[in-house]
Amino acid sequence: MSDAPFALNKLAPPIRMALGITGAALLAGLAILVFGIWPARQKIKALIAEIAQLNDTRASMERDIAGTQKQQAVTEAAEADFQAFLDLGVLEPLLGSFSMRGKSLLDPLAKASGFTISSVKEERLIPLQVPAPPPQQLYARQLVEFTGHGAYTQIVAFVQAAEQTFPLAILSGLRIESQIQTPERHKATLTFEWPVKGEKRK
């Protein structure tokens, strides 16, 4: 153990001091390199990349913002087209009821054609095929069943008037049954369908 510091003890003090200073300086330099310079360079590299990305983002934002007016016009045109379609006769419930709405729309036509509506029933809601990309607000087909009586010509005149007045109303079910007691007046069950708002996509 007396030789513990090994050969250092055998060296002269000035040489030992020189070696000590050299070693300490090298250690300090290494520490600066490993714990200071290397991480700082990495951070700077990452920051430069982030700044470049921010610059790109900003440039793209500026481009997008520059097109606001054009986009506004395009959006308004799209919404006007959409509204025009809705105005063609996308059915809105009346007091929460599609059958009430259907009745309110078709009653005047039935009266004009001579067809007597005795009952109106809200039928199934059939989801509509979905395009890609799908809208948030989905639309569906609402079936409304009208039962009544009338002569064949009156029933058909009612169907014709409904089809002509409401371009989006489709006769999707029909049953005209002859009545033994009233050969000129038949029982008719007509199912009309309209597009309506369906579920909202999650």
Partner: peptide, 21 residues
């Protein structure tokens, strides 16, 4: 601008669906 684009996309998607009808 993004909201305007989303509205446009929604209007066209809804129109496409109603177009099926």
């Amino acid at each position: 601008v993004l909201e305007l684009r989303a509205r446009e996309k929604e209007a066209y998607a809804a129109l496409a669906q109603l177009g099926f009808y």
